[in-house]
Design a protein around this nucleic acid. Structure first.
Lengths: 214, 214
DNA sequence: ACCTGAACACCGTTCAAGT
DNA sequence: ACCTGAACACCGTTCAAGT
């Protein structure tokens, strides 16, 4: 499992270029052929570094997972750090709208991804939760943040690669869908920050109550 | 936009067969060619009923969206009905693990999907929320349920179509990932019901507090 | 109105061959 | 050890043709 110097470097460079292409053209548009071309190499050369496209995507996932811990000082209280980590997850959705889906759909299978997962769970423990409560709150938070991230993307930050023509605005004559129409302004991108914070508050408040109780 | 009898029927039959194939072989494995074959027809015949594969997927999405309202009596209180709708969303994740992803990732663009969305939002209004609060709680609930649904799937109910070899159980020597290891038993499929209910309680409790306040 | 069949421009991956 | 190039078995979709 130990890297042989150049190999790990290459893997990372390839994954980074893949993420770049995904950011630019969408996940569906990423192909081994195009990725090879972008790196000045034949598609098949990539199979020397990754066994399959699936493994390459695990490599891209690793890059996203690493960002969960970005810019979080060690010396802050655990609950504060946890909050920042989940806020980071949302930021990843915004910065990498086409790649974000990898985070909630692909299992963590690589060393680096599992290491980050380990540290995240350790932070729950540091906050005072036992294994069961850590599992529970992790699931609830990760669920909420994943779903919120996906909504943010569908919401309008990024276009879907294979979207069909009609969008809500074309549709809503307000006669037919009054409730949908009235809700649209409150779900604009600008408003989503507040809603996300509100949801996160809900969960963290419950966590704090829980900690005080025991 | 009005249907011409047979046409709508056909569309539905095709979408249903597509969902069946997705359930059996995964979303990635669905192709126009295979779907045609399953219906005893050439792939190109499908383009007479759907303009593209994207539109076909919108048709499959419709089938899922309809199930959100399944088995919910009109005469129950709005909050109760809302809870049931979001529980239904999770059931959809469990019953259609490979297709569920369509729900949080594809925008609602078809008549039937928007109608269901309209009724869902109307139920928030019936419960006593204004448009803004409806938008907020809808987003938080939909976010949580989507994320929880995806986690449920990754968790183990369905295999990923392009999963790579290693899974956590192979990995965790408990030396290297003690926190990950200790959390595994609490995230087993059997336990996810409780965690889901716990998360939903959190949000519905906040909704009830909110309603009492005003 | 509905379906076929050939064709185009792509895919991921295998394999044998090159350096 | 690393890369190429041809080939295989697929894709979604266009287009002209059939009934």
């Amino acid at each position: 499992m130990k890297a042989r110097g150049k190999r790990t470097l290459e893997r990372r460079v390839i994954a980074q270029k893949a993420l770049e292409l995904i950011d630019r053209n969408g996940l569906e548009a990423l192909s081994m052929r195009k990725l090879g071309a972008a790196l000045g190499v034949e598609a098949m050369a990539l199979y020397h570094h990754f066994e399959s496209k699936a493994e390459l995507l695990d490599g891209v996932l690793e890059l996203l997972v690493e960002q969960i811990e970005r810019g979080i000082p060690e010396n802050k209280p655990p609950l504060w750090r946890l909050r920042r980590m989940f806020e980071n997850m949302r930021r990843i959705a915004i910065e990498h709208p086409h790649a974000f889906i990898l985070l909630p759909t692909r299992r963590f299978r690589t060393q680096r991804a599992l290491e980050a997962y380990e540290r995240l769970l350790q932070t729950f423990r540091d906050a005072g939760f036992d294994a069961e409560a850590s599992a529970r709150y992790f699931r609830v938070l990760a669920g909420f943040v994943s779903g919120a991230g996906l909504a943010e993307i569908g919401g309008s930050r990024a276009l879907q690669p294979d979207a069909t023509g009609v969008i809500l605005e074309d549709f809503s004559d307000e006669q037919e869908f009054p409730r949908v129409t009235e809700v649209v302004p409150y779900l604009r991108v600008r408003k989503l920050d507040q809603i996300f914070a509100f949801g996160l508050d809900l969960i963290f408040d419950a966590m704090k109550r829980d900690l005080r109780k025991t």
